[in-house]
Design a protein around this nucleic acid. Structure first.
Lengths: 205, 205
DNA sequence: TTCCGGGGGTGACAGAAATCACAGCGGGTA
DNA sequence: TACCCGCTGTGATTTCTGTCACCCCCGGAA
């Protein structure tokens, strides 16, 4: 699939510029696309696959904030590009993914010259901001059992799948919890007929 | 103080437009400037005082996200203005405050016509996004004792004061915790010589 | 002065979650 | 086949936090 079909709203001049200056990169499932603290040279637009954005702390803890789907962009890379120049988050490919990398030095001109780009950036800020607000809701107001349900439900929404190939340990990492807690909560959910548990796979019902 | 001195970066045409269309409003300490779910008619720029932005949940819980100081604006009111049309947060004046209200129907034109406004909006998104990231850090990775320390330290930074006129109950509300927990943690901080406790007042040392 | 309500201290307890310990199971590899 | 390692289940224990009960203290109002 051609990348342009992911961004039909872009105007011709912008498409031409991106065509000339941007680089398309492929990542395998599990690859780290961007590390916390890494110098940011490009803004990333997702073309195919699915990317998870994590917040990390010093002690090796990590916390899944949200997903990026095809047609979406990393708001953080747009922000960091101009402010701090190093990434505040980690981006990981959850599936094999295609990503379009646009050098940050072009951002200013693109914002000024191409209205469709400007609208895209504003829209990206808005969507990610909204998403961050619901992340705050979850960790500020909800217990782990509700956060786990939200986690599974969101996965189903984002992927359209009703089964998840994932270990309890990975879920615990995403929620910054521990494997035992997640196992126990999943068992309770199974007793309530919300899920069926298998090895390395969870069926959502 | 004239409002223009708070926004020296604005260009003449923009100042003229704001002068003509915006309304300046005064709030007393404790006044609610905007409620969750309220229809948004204006974008708010803070001229004087200090405004606290809260996220609320259905059960009456609230959670302080960040402060707005003079010269800053509510990113949420910019976002909601166009997307959902109702506020996702609550804004409360912590001190007597002056706020400039700009009707949202002007936003589109202002973004297009006035580069200094556009830059201001982008900058606002960035700052609030960064602030939200550190909020996520705190509640995702830190225990209540560290969150309390962050809360006090941030207050000192934002106000430049080294004493806080506030009850333990109000702190508990801001952190979505309970009065007893905050009292106990403050006592421990006092034993470590980080604070001195008084009635309705905390001295930061 | 007395009364009363809000602020603050403290112990007892309950529930959520993290941690430790250990056992069974399954799938891949030597 | 035998082995190993990662995934899962489960009990015991501890820590953190929220909740309940009850106390005293202060300051303003009557």
């Amino acid at each position: 699939m051609n990348w342009k079909e992911r961004f039909p709203q872009f105007e011709p001049g912008l498409i031409e510029l991106i065509e000339k200056e941007a680089v398309q990169r492929s990542f395998n499932a599990g690859d780290v696309i961007m590390r916390t603290g890494q110098y940011i040279k490009s803004t990333a637009l997702v073309l195919e696959g699915r990317v998870k954005i994590y917040r990390e702390n010093q002690d090796g803890g990590e916390f899944l904030m949200y997903y990026l789907l095809p047609g979406q962009a990393c708001a953080v890379s747009m922000i960091c590009a101009i402010q701090t120049h190093t990434s505040e988050v980690m981006a990981v490919a959850e599936e094999d993914s295609e990503v379009l990398m646009i050098p940050v030095h072009l951002m200013d001109d693109m914002m000024n010259q191409y209205k469709t780009w400007y609208q895209f950036v504003i829209q990206t800020y808005r969507n990610r901001f909204d998403e961050l607000l619901s992340v705050v809701d979850n960790i500020a107001f909800r217990n782990m059992d509700e956060r786990l349900e939200f986690y599974l439900k969101r996965y189903a929404e984002k992927t359209g799948k009703k089964s998840m190939d994932i270990s309890h340990q990975q879920i615990a990492d995403d929620l910054n919890s521990s494997r035992e807690v997640i196992s126990r909560l999943l068992k309770k959910m199974e007793q309530r007929n919300l899920v069926k548990l298998h090895r390395n796979m969870i069926e959502l019902t």
